[in-house]
């Protein structure tokens, strides 16, 4: 408990410095939080679009019941596949007439149904990337009684490009702000070390261990990081409410992300404090 007590005393003794540090960390993490909110909403939107990714295999008219059962069960057993739905010729015509007005006009007069039966294959979440979709499509086209395999290749590619851009931007922007937050915590801890240089020299002089001397500064970094994380969460929540009420329906962050954000702030604070402590006190007991 001593390191935390001393860290709190140190923060209370220099309230302006502490406030500056926590504010700076909060703002950095707030921007990360806003980005998290955006990334989460983009991700959910993409997932919703991805759910619509399906492969349609058009069947030859001469396929019999046994072959249909076989092909359904075999495709259903592919590791990427979530479900296989059979759409009969009649259902296909009914769907078409329902969705396309011009079809419904001609439907009563059609004597021969021109539409093929099909299998609509949905893939498991996480396996809806272009490569998996392509692999499954190629494997399906290998069946003799499958006439043609279609999937929105362009759409699948675009969705995944969007996801990659979002992921890459998250990494770059998130990383940049994390770095800014680290530098700020580090600078605060350095100032704190300088402000206590006489105390540190006396501790070293009378034989305090290096760990004893360093721990309060690590605790200071941890506290600043956690406080910054908590403030950033409050700010992000405020922004979320504002957007949700005034602009458009927005999803709030998952609990795991919130916990990771606050803990991440603490870890970030402690790591940057550790780096500064190591640099500033590298002469400690060095002979």
């Amino acid at each position: 408990m001593r390191p935390f007590r001393e860290a709190l005393i140190s923060l209370v003794r220099r309230p302006m410095l502490a406030a500056l540090s926590v504010t700076a960390i909060s703002l950095s993490l707030f921007i990360l939080g806003l980005f998290g909110l955006t990334a989460h909403n983009i991700s959910r939107a993409l997932a919703a679009v991805e759910e619509k990714v399906e492969i349609v295999a058009y069947l030859r008219d001469e396929i019999d019941e046994a072959q249909l059962r076989l092909v359904r069960s075999e495709i259903g057993a592919f590791p990427e596949v979530e479900s296989v739905e059979y759409v009969s010729k009649t259902e296909a015509l009914y769907n078409a007439s329902r969705e396309l007005a011009e079809f419904s006009d001609v439907f009563p007069d059609v004597e021969v149904n021109p539409l093929p039966a099909s299998l609509e294959v949905r893939l498991l979440p996480g396996r809806r990337d272009p490569q998996s979709v392509g692999t499954v499509a190629v494997r399906m086209s290998g069946y003799d009684f499958i006439d043609d395999v279609r999937f929105g290749r362009d759409w699948v590619d675009r969705i995944h490009t969007l996801r990659r851009i979002a992921g890459g931007t998250a990494l770059i922007v998130g990383g940049s702000f994390a770095l800014v937050a680290m530098l700020l915590v580090g600078a605060t801890v350095r100032m704190s070390i300088h402000a206590r240089s006489t105390e540190i020299a006396i501790m070293e002089n009378v034989g305090a261990t290096a760990g004893f001397i360093q721990r309060p500064f690590l605790a200071e970094g941890l506290i600043s990081g956690l406080a910054g994380g908590a403030f950033a969460l409050a700010l992000t929540f405020g922004a979320y409410r504002l957007l949700d009420r005034a602009v458009m329906a927005v999803l709030w962050l998952p609990d795991l992300w919130i916990a990771a954000g606050i803990l991440g702030g603490g870890v970030l604070g402690m790591l940057s404090a550790g780096r500064s402590v190591r640099q500033e006190l590298k002469g400690l007991y060095a002979i």
Binding site: I202, A210, I287
Partner: peptide, 19 residues
């Protein structure tokens, strides 16, 4: 390095400027 604090506890140091 980690033994130095033990040594320092056995060697008191008094400075001109008190510290």
């Amino acid at each position: 390095r980690r033994e130095i604090p033990q040594l320092r506890r056995r060697v008191g140091f008094v400075f001109q400027d008190f510290r």
